[in-house]
Design a protein around this nucleic acid. Structure first.
Lengths: 228, 228
DNA sequence: TAAAAAGTAAAACGATGGTTGTAATAGACC
DNA sequence: GGTCTATTACAACCATCGTTTTACTTTTTA
């Protein structure tokens, strides 16, 4: 994988700064370009230019070429956004500290808005996701599986745990299937925004997005609120 | 590539059909190939082969080349599926003949299952939609707009009309926004199936799809049922 | 300071693919 | 039959692109 000198390694050779920085610069630029143009349309030259690197350097860091680079970008971007989503989840809906019943709708709404906000903050990522779904038939199944597991499913599990916690406190009624409630919650708050904005390509006005999010939360509470 | 004799083989002895047939054969094959491979990866040669035509014929029918062909495929496929979706809608949820209250859940479920079934019947189309969303940034806005209008939005309007009719009969409560109820209905019945099956790429088992659809309908009725 | 590691620029190679031109072939219609 | 149209096979052109090679420069480390 990494460079192996021909000599012994008595010397702790650590080219530290430049190397790692170049690698992340490349991955970051690749995320932008892949997200904008998709796998086929994206060219190594474009990525190199936007990364401020030469194509040769790309092949030094990613001997597997374009495919390996794409896989690396998938993984990197997925983990980054997952961590951010989990942070928002824990900030606004910590399973350890369930909200007061009166605050439930407000808390869910804040969480939903935070998540919708992430779609704008990580536009590149969600563009990439769009392309991943489109190209799913051309991505090795085990790569796809690893991506799902590290990203979307990891988030889903945590949200499901939060839903279970809410159900335990009788704040909502998950009707026996917290995972189902999770999927419905996410669908209700994000489907219309996702589609109307073309997955973030042409964002909706803030107030419109807020309106749709609030409508989604209210519908969710009508379907899953313990009072209803 | 293919077996080509020195002279024209007897393969061309088929009864010649009209010009329009060739055009639809090309569009149909293009729909398959674009749906499978996406715009960039799809090659004119592949489309020609699968259509049983020569590349020259494609350019005769579509002087605008690959782009015009893609636009034609978008329009053709979109209208075809829209008509089928509208047919199912009218069959199971005719605004002129609202269902008996006791039958509402059953009727919605049948409609939802029929729609999910269409995702399998028109796999090519939905693969194409996937690619349209991914490539949205590379499609002229007016083309995208025309496609939305002729396809998804046309269906959405009819469903909204049906929702309004149900609301008028007090069978559901749309909370003042039948269009919103429509979007939520569609999101609840199809989001999870769409994602888990990769937009139909690897279909879910029938019973699992049925279970998810039923859960979506029940959640919808909890959120929008007039009794709840 | 010198060696080693990393990066860069430019050229080249091979393959693919969109597109066009041309000549030949086979039905359709008078 | 004779003409017209649609189609086809085939070659050619040109651009793009992934990838490698080569030679050269910069940075890091010992």
């Amino acid at each position: 994988m990494t460079s192996t000198g021909a000599k012994g390694e008595t010397t702790t050779t650590r080219p530290r700064r430049s190397r790692a920085d170049k690698a992340t610069a490349i991955v970051q630029a690749a995320c932008e370009v892949f997200g904008r143009d998709g796998y086929s349309r994206a060219s190594i030259d474009t990525i190199a230019t936007e990364a401020g690197a030469s194509t040769r350097t790309i092949y030094n860091h990613f001997p597997g070429g374009k495919e390996e680079l794409f896989r690396s970008v998938m993984q990197w971007s997925s983990e980054r956004v997952r961590d951010e989503q989990l942070a928002q989840l824990r900030r606004y809906l910590d399973p350890e500290r369930p909200p007061h019943p009166d605050d439930l709708e407000r808390d869910l709404l804040v969480l939903a808005r935070a998540w919708v906000g992430l779609m704008a903050d990580f536009r590149d990522h969600f563009s990439l996701v769009r392309h991943i779904y489109a190209e799913a038939g051309h991505i090795p199944p085990e790569v796809l599986e690893a991506w799902q597991e590290a990203g979307p499913r990891a988030v889903g599990r945590e949200v499901t745990a939060a839903m279970s916690a809410l159900a335990d406190r009788r704040l909502i009624d998950v009707h026996g299937d917290p995972a189902q409630a999770t999927v419905h919650f996410m669908a209700l708050i994000s489907t219309e925004i996702t589609q109307r904005s073309y997955w973030g390509l042409s964002p909706l006005p803030q107030e419109e997005a807020d309106r749709l999010t609030a409508a989604g939360v209210r519908a969710f509470l009508r379907a899953y609120g313990s009072a209803g």
